[in-house]
Design a protein around this nucleic acid. Structure first.
Length: 580
RNA sequence: CGGGGCGUAGCGCAGCCUGGUAGCGCACCUGGUUCGGGACCAGGGAGUCGGAGGUUCAAAUCCUCUCGCCCCGACCA
């Protein structure tokens, strides 16, 4: 592509409404433009990046035996009504009516629609396994679109659905998809973790998330440093007997029991403040949180340096959800100001994390404004139902290999795979005849990849202060060719190189604009193509051109290579990424 | 939905408190000089100040309502 003819509207200043690196850079580099909240134009470069991701995904899906289909984005309400999701989905569903008043919605995901295909077309056990996928725009009226392409109301997703004759066979399909997903993420050159995940509302037994590691990610995951265990902190298991205290020792330490003592702690309520005030480490505190569960106020206690896992607390209570109590409820439950809750004398049920129960001579709120207790010991001074309700964190011992230690990471969820079971096939009557003519529900799996989100995700992981630094396999163009000056031989040699590279399957963006060198280099860094080739009159006089990798920060590290070798060298550097 | 903030030229912002001529930088157009890391000089075009109502002789500025957008939290690809 000739830059002079391309729509690449770069801007020096990031839009005021952008917070994430990827959002700022996508706008600054002219890849996308905002149309509305959570809705974006993909300009030529943005679309090329999207297409690169799509084609990797398609290739690996096809290789795994999945077949591409396309379902409508505009859907009649009847299918979602059939499974009850018309109501369950709530405000997230974009609903609309046609001219006759009929109810419709835009598809947020397609389990119902694909199950409808299955119940009409899959009749026999001989028809399976089958896997159908599509790459399509999805619509969700998110409570809060954010982060540019990271969270949109309209976004491109690859969704695949597997159909099998049994749970065991479904597990096989799931494994095939798991391998295909690994191949997809490996080929994209992203650093990611496959983590155990909460199956969540979609239900089902087995699920894994593909989390691309990025400090700006919204998800917290933990991974073992010695085995391949990795999990979303929401479901990560914690090895209780090996809890490390703040001192590094295994709790409980063998120390003499202290007396329970009430101390005055005027206006210091947070763990940080009280910890400083009493000169006790945070691990000696009992973090006491009032939660509301089915209108009952309960107290959840974790060690002061730990975080509560709300999902586990809800499970321990046997409810769907728990809510951190508001100020009024806290006052009602503790009869004290917020910040002085504690398990001693708490009026309701108390759930205590095992690690908190192990703390010797602990400190906790006294359920009395401006007062705390010290010297508390579980069983002697306080009690509660002991459960595992804390989040895993850096330093915890791995439950899988029993030798490694967990480390926390931030991640962006880019893919999610599930075994769905028969939830949709049973309610929608997607049955098949087995060898004995018996009708059985099809066992399904579903597999998503956030394609447009990956454009942003890739940038979150691949950028520096000057712009994007695309991995070869995702870059809109492999080579950014910069010509300097107006000499005719420069343009002539550049044209030859440009044509030859393109003939060899190398994607080249040639900056042929009449701009000063600084402008061209700044734009090249911003756009982030992995290889930059510069042709100027000086080096060309010696038959040389300049080659620089975008990820090489030092401009002096550019290498001079003979023009005669340029095609071969570049073809090698681009490598297999552009091979068909 | 709860909390915070912002809507003034294509983009980034000032002006608003204390009403009275709408301004700066970038971008854009014309001419000239420049040309290996976002050049310089001269000239120029461009804004119903998000919208509606109100107060006032007078509203970007004060008041009310409304729409849109962003950020922080609970959900998800």
């Amino acid at each position: 592509m000739l830059y002079s003819r391309a729509l690449i509207p770069t801007v020096k200043e990031a839009p005021a409404d952008a917070a994430n690196a990827s959002h700022k850079l996508l706008v600054r580099a002219g890849y996308i433009r905002k149309v509305g909240a959570g809705m974006y134009d993909f300009l030529p470069l943005g679309l090329r990046a999207l297409r690169k991701i799509e084609s990797i995904v398609r290739e690996e899906m096809n290789r795994a035996g999945a077949q591409e289909i396309l379902m409508p984005a505009l859907l009649p309400a009847e299918y979602f009504k059939e499974t009850g999701r018309w109501d369950v989905y709530g405000d997230t569903l974009f609903r609309l009516k046609d001219r006759k008043g009929g109810e419709f919605h835009l598809g947020p995901t397609h389990e119902e629609i694909v199950t409808d295909i299955a119940r009409r077309e899959i009749k026999s056990w001989r028809d399976m396994p089958m896997n159908l996928y599509q790459v399509q725009s999805k619509f969700r009226d998110e409570p809060r679109p954010r982060g540019g392409l990271l969270r949109c109301r309209e976004f491109v997703m690859k969704d695949a659905y597997s159909f099998d004759i049994s749970e065991e066979a479904a597990r096989g399909s799931y494994e095939i998809m798991r391998k295909a997903y690994r191949a997809v993420f490996d080929r994209m050159g992203l650093t990611y973790r496959m983590v155990a995940a909460d199956p969540g509302a979609i239900g089902g037994s087995t699920s894994a998330e593909f989390q691309v590691l990025a400090d700006s990610g919204e998800d917290s995951i933990v991974a073992c440093d010695s085995c391949d265990y990795a999990a979303n902190v929401e479901i990560a298991t914690v090895r209780v007997e090996g809890v490390r205290g703040a001192s590094g020792a295994i709790e409980p330490p063998h120390v003499a029991e202290e007396e329970k003592t009430k101390v005055v702690t005027p206006k210091v309520s947070s763990i940080e403040e009280v910890s400083a005030f009493l000169a006790l480490p945070k691990a000696r505190f009992l973090k006491s949180l009032v939660y509301s569960a089915n209108k009952e106020l309960i107290l959840a206690v974790v060690r002061g340096d730990h975080e509560l896992n709300e999902i586990r607390l809800a499970r321990a209570l046997g409810v769907d959800e728990v809510f951190l109590a508001g100020e009024a409820d806290v006052k009602k439950a503790t009869r004290a100001a917020v910040g002085f809750a504690g398990p001693v004398g708490f009026a309701g049920r108390v759930f205590v994390d095992r690690a908190a129960a192990h703390v010797a001579n602990a400190a906790a709120g006294a359920n009395e404004s401006d007062h705390h207790f010290t010297g508390l010991n579980f069983g002697r001074d306080w009690s509660g139902e002991v459960v595992d309700i804390r989040l895993a964190a850096t330093g915890d011992l791995c439950t899988n290999c029993e030798t490694g230690t967990l480390k926390s990471y931030r991640g962006i969820e880019a893919g999610h795979i599930f075994i769905l079971g028969t939830r949709y096939s049973e309610t929608m009557g997607a049955l098949f005849a087995d060898e004995k003519q018996e009708k059985k529900p099809i066992v399904m799996g579903c597999y998503g990849i956030g394609v447009s989100r990956l454009v942003a995700t890739a940038i979150e992981q691949n950028h520096d202060e000057n712009g994007m630094t695309w991995p070869m396999s995702l870059a809109p163009y492999h080579v950014h060719l910069v010509t300097l000056g107006k000499e005719e031989n420069v343009a002539a040699e550049a044209k030859k190189l440009y044509d030859e590279l393109r003939a060899q399957g190398v994607d080249v963006l040639w900056d042929d604009r009449d701009e000063r060198p600084g402008v061209k280099f700044k734009d090249a860094d911003l756009l982030g193509m992995p290889l930059r080739v510069t042709i100027g009159a000086k080096s060309l006089a010696n038959g040389m051109i300049e080659l620089k990798a975008r990820k090489e920060l030092d401009p002096k590290k550019a290498e001079l290579i003979p023009l005669a070798d340029a095609v071969r060298v570049l073809r090698e550097r681009v490598g297999a990424a552009s091979a068909p």
